[in-house]
Write a protein that binds this DNA or RNA. Structure first.
Lengths: 226, 226
DNA sequence: ATGAAGAATTCTGAATTCAGAATGTAGTTC
DNA sequence: GAACTACATTCTGAATTCAGAATTCTTCAT
């Protein structure tokens, strides 16, 4: 009681993070799938993988249930978990939905985002350009994803962010293989410049177009790289 | 091997359902949340609820992890699961996304659905009218949800169905309380007639408009009932 | 040598058990 | 009388254990 009253403001209070083991495992396995350590079609052996991570089967099993509901793995009764394979059609479908969501988000972002939030995005973008300059591909990739998620969240619609995040996660492992070639990467960076520009000027339609265009051209680049 | 070859066609093969306990528990608890047995804000006591369902804590815990990733419950570390409360703003946001998804689905449905599939929807619709006639509210509600899901799936985009399903599930517990009053219910039935009509004539724009209108007016009815 | 049947092993599904964190209560002190 | 501390209880997080299903390997018959 006393402690709570002593705090200056609720917004400053950041609860200490104390993730449970299964949450750590969820993101760990997500990374393994994205990076290809667990390739599509691979069976996840509870005993084996659990031992690798140095944990018992229980938290691993709980993590697999979550990943299954996210669609990254499939649970076959009494046969365990298998990493789902992403067919070109499935990827195309996902991108179609993502485009729709981005198109929906753009005007909301321009309307609802504060100047500070936009400035923050620009800052992240500059940082990302730094990674591009030094060709730090993994860092670039991770920050890139973060910027996109952050951008969508500026629309101020939780549900929109939620479904975007789900599809984004599913796409990650494909996205990562794209932009490998120098010219593809450069094209992606140029796409981003347009998005940032539209965001700065709060031009809804242009932002919408730029974001959709970015998704479309990303996909083209990925298909070429396959 | 032999068995697989002996089967006439892959599409005919329906694997026998043998759901694991945790899957049963997932849908069971979903129902409990939707029906209000577990009201918003209620803490789910692992030992207690587990005993009620006659199962051990393990499958219950696994189910809770899944429900958490669906957003129906929230997991507070070392304090357990709490049924999430749905604020009006959150509901509004959800509906905005649902509208977008339905608008996206409509033209795809008109394009991709086969005549048989459309006929099937009409059949379900007639069956639902039967439930309306006898005022079987729960059956009506369940079939209604099924028709909507089925309709979206006709767009032939798995991802679209997936995210629709997720949001739909979250909305269920609110939807259920709507259409309680006779005139609201009747209005909903009229909305449906328009949807069916547009579907039969494969008129994309009109189907889109009808579906979006249905979502919008449903929400109005729900708000009045609150 | 090949194929089938049956036993043995392996792996998953679920229950039980153990350890640690949180909450609630009683007692003590100022 | 109020507040703080120490203890007891309760509940979650995670490991271990047990049972049943699936796979693999062996053996036998053709």
């Amino acid at each position: 009681m006393k402690v709570r009253e002593a705090m200056s403001s609720p917004s400053e209070v950041i609860p200490i993070e104390r993730p449970t083991l299964h949450m750590i495992v969820v993101s760990r396995i997500r990374d393994m799938v994205i990076e290809g350590t667990l390739p599509a079609g691979a069976r996840i052996h509870e005993g084996q993988v659990g031992e690798q991570l140095g944990i018992s089967r229980t938290p691993l099993r709980e993590a697999l249930k979550v990943l299954a509901s996210e669609g990254l793995v499939e649970l076959v009764p009494s046969r365990g978990a298998v990493v789902t394979t992403l067919t070109p059609k499935a990827a195309q479908d996902m991108l179609d939905v993502l485009k729709e969501l981005e198109a929906m988000a753009a005007p909301l972002i321009c309307e609802n985002a504060s100047d500070e939030e936009i400035a923050e995005i620009c800052q992240l973008h500059d940082k990302m350009l730094g990674f591009y300059a030094t060709r730090s591909r993994l860092e670039y990739f991770k920050l890139n994803q973060q910027i996109h998620s952050r951008l969508i969240s500026l629309a101020g619609n939780e549900s929109l962010s939620l479904v975007y995040e789900i599809l984004q996660t599913r796409m990650k492992r494909i996205r990562f293989i794209g932009d490998k070639k120098e010219d593809s990467w450069q094209a992606a960076v140029e796409d981003h410049d347009k998005i940032i520009e539209a965001l700065k000027s709060r031009n809804g339609p242009r932002l919408s177009a730029a974001m959709v265009e970015h998704v479309t051209s990303s996909w083209e680049r990925i298909k070429r790289a396959l």
